[in-house]
Amino acid sequence: MRTPNEIDGPLETPVRFVFPQWSNALLPAVIVMMLVAPIYAALVLTYGLSPVTHNVGYMPTQPIPFSHKIHAGELGLDCRYCHNTVEDAAKAAIPPTQTCMTCHAQVQTQSEALKPLWESYSEGTAIRWQRVHDLPDFVYFNHSAHVERGVGCASCHGRIDQMDVVFQSESLSMGWCLECHRDPEPNLRPLDQVTNLAFDPLVDQSAEARRGLLEGLRITPSEGCSTCHR
């Protein structure tokens, strides 16, 4: 006689998955990853998408190795000698060839570096300077509104007079504009120091002097959207 068991064979037990021995070692790794991943993602997204990361340090190659360090720094030329529209207009004009020629018609006329300048001069063509600072076209910006109100070039462009090649030193993002529009006082300087990049508004004048400027000139930068988006 056979027992039923013997006839049908042993009862089939369901196959159970057993984690291999080595998987124990993974557990701490998984926990660490779950803790680190959100922090990592947050950091990478904030810094990776930040305008500071993308915009600051942009330094295109220019057709002529023009150096602000020599011209604005060592020769002491005022910014307005070349960017002469900066006080009256929205745009700070890049100087025409003629402006360079006030000196370079005599100075280093045989220089290799100045070949494109002479080409432009004799043929009447424009030198194709590469734009460094470039806001999106839907933003309205105005130099004279800032320069005539005690905001210096250095607040937005950094120490141009120490740069051999111009690079962007601020992010020019909307948050950056608003930061100053909400509290312009730390950036205000006397009107005759606007183009003096060595002047530090926080160090070279007292807090009272800054407040005096704020109140004396009645400076109230607007945060309304239509100020910059018009």
């Binding site: 810094y47 190659t61 470039d134």
Partner: peptide, 16 residues
């Protein structure tokens, strides 16, 4: 992170 640190510490000639 390495790319971000590089972007933030060096000058680059590619536009934004």
């Amino acid at each position: 992170p390495v790319l971000i640190v590089r972007m933030r510490t060096t000058k680059h000639s590619l536009p934004r």
